[in-house]
Design a binder for these strands. Structure first.
Length: 712
DNA sequence: GCACTGACCGTTTTT
DNA sequence: CGGTCAGTGC
């Protein structure tokens, strides 16, 4: 990237007042603009702590923080750095979710929730969904917990509350789901538990129903900046509006072409209609792409032009290059993996591109580095999580270092979740999902029978489960062993709650582990020493994370100490916490990840694999129709624009699914980006249909392209 | 209360 | 094919 800012970038940086929409295409220096703008605001006299920047991921927030602090005037004397950074006001840079947690911590009681709420995760949600369905006696065949969660999530994303959902229900099934939703929500509320969608939804409700709260929160900032605005859902839109409507100093940055989260409630309309929502808004377009070589940009532009609903823009490549993206076609998915891995091996051994002599010299001159490729320069991107399997196997066989980004995260592991459940109970013993989780783990004599009776009693008395254990009232008829277990558990948790304020956080975690004899439990459960060691290490990591958190936050000796704060941090943080994803990407290894996980990243060499109908436009999206396919196209666009130097698109002619192998069709996006499909938007259809794939197979792909088009 | 077994069933992405 | 879950036997 050239030094300094180009005129468009400067325009975006220097426009400090009023609504501003920055349409920033892929690789156009968006992050740079955002951080420079923050610095510019401060330079112009805005107090740093009057600025709020909102991002979607923890990682983006961290990155922005780091870059922005590099740009801020460095007037600090090099004395006591810690004390200094504490009192020096800084811009607030946080994710939507942690922003909402902080707002809810102040006001949630107005919505009838207990102040000490805890945040539950996906599998807690599942168990809550299950019990809600049990309560209304919905047969499992009609609606499964996962289906219910899907409905609930969709409702919440559209700000639909249980009564509305019941009103809207047309089919019996909807009705069932709606009444389960009501149960689910009531149960969570009673237990003082909020799920992930609630963080946003409840904040929105606060703003809408309590204007004083909205004004109060809005009054904390004079300038608001929202990154990845194309990903805002309804609640986020309302929250942003509520915060910015007073001063109107709202800058949103995003790229409608990279909106890939509609399924999670994101509405592109927010960025498409920004001018309508804020009529005095200024619009700045960033279209100079500094990332990718021109042939890659050509593909990207041609592809995305097939989408109808978008802000018209066209990436202009800054880096002119010759290497066209390659398309390779293999017999099946295992050959696809073999071929890609062999290619990578070649790349690593012989330097990028297999360049030599003069070409290599030129590369060095143009790019300021040798064509030498390191594993971390390479990424394999795919649509679905089953795809990486074959690649992992091949990479392992070839003894190449790789990291699978995403997948099971640290905080999803069973043992870690157990520990977290205990900690959540310290913060909020009414948290029923957590209490149920550890009720008999490690085993303390409370079997299924006892558990069932305890829950029944809680429902009968209409109190949280914890009250049944702790209120001193008669326990239901359970075995003596169960009774002893219940009392022991109750006393232990009450003891922790008393010690929490006076005990350092990591000590507290250790105490929990030793009080419940968790290590012994691990030893009992996992005889295999390797397994046991891994799991012990995992809970050790929780202690470390606690220690890290405490040293970052500073100790707290009132209330429940740092326990609640720690839990908030973990729940809203990017699940693979600070060191994980970051370190993984820094480790010199080939990155394997989904297209969704790749947003915002870039790699010199990108392999976009599985370019087939039913995978890249995913079958489900194809079935759903044009709008869904448009999102798949954006996904492909995101993948293509991750590549700096070389892009390789690959597909398999047959693919095994559940044991059976089936023929595939090349992704329509291959035809589109190579100019072999007619773009109805530009009637300049290109003649001369070439094979999109240079594979060795005889199959006529172009005839298929024709027949596909005929079907439209 | 727990470990083992076989039947069944599924297609996406995740803050 | 591989994961999940209910059901069985200790």
């Amino acid at each position: 990237m050239p030094p300094g800012l180009n005129p468009a970038q400067q325009d975006a940086v220097k426009t400090l007042k009023g609504p501003l929409l920055v349409l920033a295409g892929a690789g156009t220096g968006k992050t740079r603009v955002v951080t420079h703008r923050i610095a510019e605001l401060i330079r112009s006299g805005v107090k740093p702590d009057r600025i709020l920047a909102v991002t979607f991921t923890r990682k983006a927030a961290g990155e922005m923080q780091e870059r922005a602090s590099g740009l801020l005037p460095k007037k600090r004397k090099r004395t006591n750095k810690q004390a200094e950074s504490k009192k020096e006001p800084r811009p607030e840079i946080s994710t939507f979710h942690s922003l909402c947690v902080r707002i809810l911590r102040r006001h949630i009681s107005k919505l009838g929730y207990p102040e000490r709420f805890t945040i539950c995760d996906r599998s807690d949600q599942e168990s809550q969904a299950r019990s809600a369905l049990r309560e209304i006696r919905a047969p499992n065949a009609v609606i499964k917990p996962a289906d219910l969660l899907g409905c609930i999530s969709r409702w919440k994303m559209g700000s639909v509350l249980p009564p509305d959902a019941i009103g809207l229900a047309e089919t019996d099934r909807d009705h069932l789901a709606a009444s389960a939703y009501r149960r689910y929500q009531n149960n969570l509320k009673k237990a003082g538990v909020v799920d992930f969608d609630d963080l946003l939804l409840l904040t929105e409700q606060l703003f809408v129903n309590f204007p004083t709260v909205r004004r109060d929160e809005a009054g904390r900032f004079d300038h608001i900046l929202v990154d990845e605005y194309q990903d805002t859902n309804h609640s986020q839109y309302e929250i942003v509006r509520g915060l910015a409507m007073g001063h109107r100093n709202l800058c949103v940055v995003g790229d409608d072409d990279q909106s890939i989260y509609a399924w999670r409630g994101a509405e592109v309309t927010h960025i498409l209609r920004f001018k309508e929502h804020w009529p005095d808004a200024k619009v700045v377009r960033l279209e100079d792409n500094y990332r990718s070589q021109s042939p890659i940009i050509d593909y990207a532009n041609t592809l995305i032009a097939f989408n109808k609903e978008r802000h018209e823009k066209r990436l202009v490549p800054f880096r002119i290059g010759q290497a066209k993206p390659r398309i390779i076609q293999m017999k099946d998915e295992s050959e696809e993996a073999q071929r890609v891995v062999a290619d990578i091996q070649q790349l690593l051994e012989h330097g990028g591109w297999g360049l030599s002599g003069e070409a290599r010299e030129r590369f060095l001159q143009e790019n300021g580095r040798d064509a030498q490729v390191r594993p971390s320069d390479i990424a394999i991107l795919f649509r679905t999580n089953e795809q990486p399997r074959a690649f992992e196997a091949e990479l392992r066989a070839a003894n190449l270092p790789y990291v699978l980004i995403g997948g099971m995260s640290f905080y999803d592991r069973r043992e870690v979740r157990d520990v977290m459940a205990y900690l959540k109970l310290i913060a909020n013993p009414d948290d029923e999902p957590s209490l149920l989780r550890i009720l008999n783990c490690p085993p303390r004599g409370i079997g299924d029978g006892a558990r069932k009776r305890l829950v029944e009693t809680a429902v009968e008395r209409a109190v949280p489960l914890w009250h049944v254990l702790s209120s001193g009232r008669e326990l239901p008829q359970i075995t003596d062993a169960a009774r002893r277990g219940v009392y022991e558990l109750r006393d232990t948790i009450e003891g922790w709650r008393q010690q929490a304020a006076s005990t350092p956080l990591p000590k507290m975690v250790e105490r929990v582990l030793s009080d419940v004899r968790y290590h012994a439990e691990l030893a009992r459960l996992y005889q295999d020493p390797n397994d046991r060691e891994a799991r012990t290490a995992a809970i050790e990591e929780v202690v470390n994370a606690a220690a890290d958190f405490e040293s970052k936050q500073g100790a707290k000796t009132d209330g429940l100490g740092l326990v609640p704060d720690f839990l908030d941090e973990i729940a809203t943080g990017d699940r693979s916490d600070s060191d994980d994803k970051e370190n993984q990407l820094n480790r010199d290894a080939i990155a394997l990840m989904t297209l969704h996980a790749a947003k915002g990243l870039e790699f010199p060499h990108v392999y976009l694999v599985g370019m087939e109908e039913t995978i890249l436009p995913h079958k489900r999206s194809i079935d759903m129709g044009e709008v869904a396919v448009a999102e798949e196209r954006r996904l492909a666009y995101v993948g293509v624009t991750r590549a700096r130097d070389r892009l390789t698109l690959s597909m398999a002619l047959t693919r095994r699914k559940w044991g059976k192998s089936r023929d595939t069709l090349p992704s329509r996006f291959l035809y589109e980006m190579t100019g072999q499909a007619d773009n109805p938007r530009y009637m300049e259809s290109k003649r001369g249909k070439k094979e999109p794939a240079k594979g060795t197979h005889k199959r006529s792909t172009s005839s298929k392209a024709k027949s596909r088009k005929a079907n439209r």
